[in-house]
Amino acid sequence: MSKEHDRGMSVIVKTVTRLTVGLILLYGIYILSHGHVSPGGGFAGGVIIALSFIHLMLAYGKEAALKRIPSQALSFFEGFGAIMFLAIALLGFTGGYFFLNFLPKGEPFKLFSAGIIPLCNIAISLKVGAGLFAIFIALVLLKFEGENK
């Protein structure tokens, strides 16, 4: 059973995955980067980015996905996202308040606007995306360990 999982699914699934996985990733980045001007944001974008990797893993098996993004990198991104969010909040002290939006706000509804909000979204997406994918990997590895017994 586990060997079959390593090799992945049928050729139809693999082909469809190859065509769609880049689009899913791109869509995630779109949701993330437009979080401050349209529905969505760091959490939703991070989840979609993580889903693109999970999609890859389901179709091609866990080695293919882990080769692109190893678990050490995941753990690094998770910690880094949180530290980045905290650092942005702390930089607000330069304007006198914790979490102050200290950057210029720009023009509403433009991509480069809203001060620190896009940066916060990026930090959240790193944390959420890496965290969600790490949880998925943990569940998968646990399942394989259970099967081997």
Binding site: S75, G79, I83, F98
Partner: peptide
């Protein structure tokens, strides 16, 4: 009053710094 948010900031930054560097 600027001391108030530090109670959350210090403990959270400790947690995430350890998760970044503590493994090595």
């Amino acid at each position: 009053a600027n001391v108030i948010p530090l109670f959350v900031v210090v403990s959270l930054s400790g947690a995430f710094l350890i998760s970044l560097f503590g493994r090595k």
